[in-house]
Amino acid sequence: MGPSAVTYLLLKYLHVLGAIVILGTGTGTGIAFFMLMAHRSGSAAFIAETSAVVVLADKLFTATAVAVQPVTGYLLMRESGYAFTDGWIALSLGLYLVAGVFWLPVVWIQARMRDLARGAAADGAPLPAAYHRLFRIWFVFGFPGFGSVAAILWLMIAKPEI
């Protein structure tokens, strides 16, 4: 196996790993599951602790993967001879932007929900209406965010001629 093949496989590995991290944490099932379970508990203290971990996970894992994906994707595209104008790549990039449009506000929403839950827990008060409103927005934003990333994964695998 020559240097070019090793480079390609390393890039592909990093790119797939990034997709796994994004699907599992950022727009994906891991964070959504833990946030939803915490919310369903109704416990402000539990929600505060869970959302603090979620915000940290987004900073450490999701943000890193989100930053690395375009780099590895571009390098893979260059190594493979694809172009930005190839339909599946153009659509993937558009969907990546859609995912970002929904993910960026969610990062802020999660931090705000954490702060509201911390305040309610400290005061021994119920979760405020603002928390519930933000949770509904967070929940709805998850569908296009996750759906976009899931569609990108399919496009990466299938590489359909569009």
Rank of each mutant, 00 (worst) to 15 (best):
Y82A: 11
Q69H: 08
F146D: 01
G81N: 08
G42S: 08
K59R: 15
D58W: 02
R78Q: 14
R133K: 14
A99E: 10
K59P: 00
Y131W: 13
L134H: 03
V54F: 00
T50H: 05
V101G: 09
G145H: 02
S43L: 08
R112D: 07
A129M: 08
D123V: 00
K59M: 14
L91T: 13
G94K: 14
L93K: 09
S92W: 01
R40W: 10
T62A: 13
V106L: 11
A122H: 11
V106T: 14
V71G: 01
T85N: 10
A63L: 13
P128R: 07
I137D: 05
W88A: 04
D123R: 14
I109N: 05
V106K: 09
G142M: 03
L104G: 05
L76E: 12
A120D: 07
D123T: 03
T62G: 03
R40I: 08
M77Y: 03
A125H: 10
A57M: 11
M113C: 09
R118Y: 00
G119F: 01
P70S: 01
P128W: 07
G81S: 06
A67R: 04
L91N: 08
L95R: 08
R40L: 13
F139M: 12
V68K: 00
L93R: 09
L56T: 12
L95T: 11
A111L: 12
R112E: 14
V66G: 01
L97F: 12
G147E: 01
D123A: 15
T50A: 12
H132C: 13
H132P: 03
Q110G: 11
A63E: 11
G81P: 01
W138N: 07
M113K: 11
I137R: 10
G73M: 05
G81D: 05
L116K: 06
A122M: 09
F102R: 09
P105W: 05
G145E: 03
L116S: 04
A48Y: 11
